[in-house]
Design a binder for these strands. Sequence first.
RNA 1: GGGGUGGUAGUUCAGCUGGUUAGAACGCUGGCCUGUCAAGCCAGAGGUCGCGGGUUCAAGUCCCGUCCACCCCGCCA
Length: 600
Amino acid sequence: MRDKYCGDVRETDVGSTLSLTGWANRWRDHGGLVFIDLRDRSGVVQIVFSPEVDAEIHELAHKIRNEFVLQVKGEVRKRPEGTENPSIPTGQVEVVVKELNVLNESKPLPFMIEDETEASELLRLRHRYLDLRRPVIRENIILRHKTARAVREYLDSQGFLEVETPVLTKSTPEGARDYLVASRTNPGHFYALPQSPQLFKQILMVSGLEKYYQIVKCFRDEDLRADRQPEFTQIDLEMSFVKRDDVISLIDEMIKKVFKDVLGKELNEPFARLKYSEAMERFGSDKPDLRFSLELKDVSGLVKESSFKVFLDTLSNGGIVKGLNAKGLARYSRKELDDLTKEVQSFGAKGLAWIKAKKGFESPIAKFFPEQTLKAVADRLEAEEGDLMLFVADKPQVVNDTLARLRQELGGRLELIKDDVYKLAWITDYPLFEWNDEEKRYEAMHHPFTSPMEEDLEMFLSMDTSELQTPDSKLSSIQAQAYDIVLNGYEIGGGSIRIHKKAVQDRMFEMLKISPEEADTKFGFLLEALEYGAPPHGGIALGLDRLVMILAGAQSIRDVIAFPKTQKAVCPLSNAPSSVDEKQLKELHIRSLHVEPDQD
RNA sequence: GGGGUGGUAGUUCAGCUGGUUAGAACGCUGGCCUGUCAAGCCAGAGGUCGCGGGUUCAAGUCCCGUCCACCCCGCCA
């Protein structure tokens, strides 16, 4: 139906007659001349209707409205001197229409098709087909395609096989809440949608496929965030006969190719490597945004020299005091400091102590500290006149967590975060276990198939299991062969070297207080597979949505997903989820406990 | 489950200490207009003020409840 895409028409086409198709993006009707921007996926080109060229077609052109679908045939000509539009690629030319075919009409739109839309997100999602016509969103979708393509090309070049794994699968314990699918043929039984293809990809390694990957939907029935959807896409891969650094260097190269292919950007400096403990110490987070420093400093040792009860009590109860230097913010008013305090409290801290470095030190708590202590603290934080020092005292976890959030907030306020800068980091040497205080047991920090560090293996296998009752046992010192990759403060991926020996896996379940019977029902198929010559293997999964969001400079993964869901996990376009017929439920052997409220 | 912000024309918003005819811009409809590209000018249509209840002579405005959207905590790697 067409000879060319609208956005591709150039001066080299001048003189030729072209058929073009697209949508009427905007029309400018002068009574005499009518200009219409014809838009397709590639961009826009101006088409002109003149009464002198064809009076009948010109008459028809008056009737064209926004988003009418047109096919036109006309001669490309250079625009008259002075009427060129340098702001669009096709701005030197226009198409004089000699044939017009209105392929479809459009009702007036609920919102305008333009980049700077003012429409609410709900309205945009309800009419996503219109939203996707907006160039910014369209470009995000194209960017996503390019990312996936770069990944496929790269992994293919490295000998990876794309293998599909089941979507109707088995509910697994630990981790997120499952989406369940009732089985018609097996009354009372349910499939779960996969939270990840974890078990299957390990089985593929036992199968001898050596290198597997998949760009695959995963499902987790948890509450949503700007960077979390109930269904999301992972770049999932697994390799046999590898060590941690084999996986890391593979992904390094893959990420570099993605940046090059998608953004045309060379990532030259090697990605940072931080041990988990170091990341927590310096940034209070295992996904630090390394685009700025603003590091946390432990001042526990220094502030012992004081009579400030809050700090002293915290320290004697095993807590710590850490602070950071908000450069130049000594000018903050009492109100601004109160607001920061409230913010930190909303993150879980009891309070926020502040000391302004001016000629002297200005602070409600300064009087509790000897002068040399204040100086020593200021030295530790490298505070100069005009700076604001902020401190949180609490259990290490609370201190790190709240200061990490405060750091991110201040990074924004101090304009330390630049767009167009991409800082990648590997976080390694994670603890294998994490104490769950509610359930009074250890949980796997990554997942229960993660291998302990080789040097910790003997202790792992031999230690007294009576230690499992307490949060401070030797168990917390065992490290995992796990690694996360972090981009600009977002965790974009994580993986590990897996356990490939049955005895080690059994031991792991014992540590997690999962009985052999339970382990057998939940993932007996993997355990059995491990007994038949499972090779050493490991892998990683990257969040495609988050990666593309960052590449696109978007604020939410919803902007890089064609049909996203709202915070209540509803699709405004299709209105899923919805109620179903009683008959369908009956076939599935299930009954809903929910009673629809009366609608009088 | 909890905290915060918002919900008024098709859209984005304004609407004060409650006061009788709820406004603006864009969009839409009609007219004029031969070089616009956010076209311009003139005229017009368009409202369940999210929903339910309450207080009041009187509610977009005050109170209670509820629904929806977004951000965050919990939850989730």
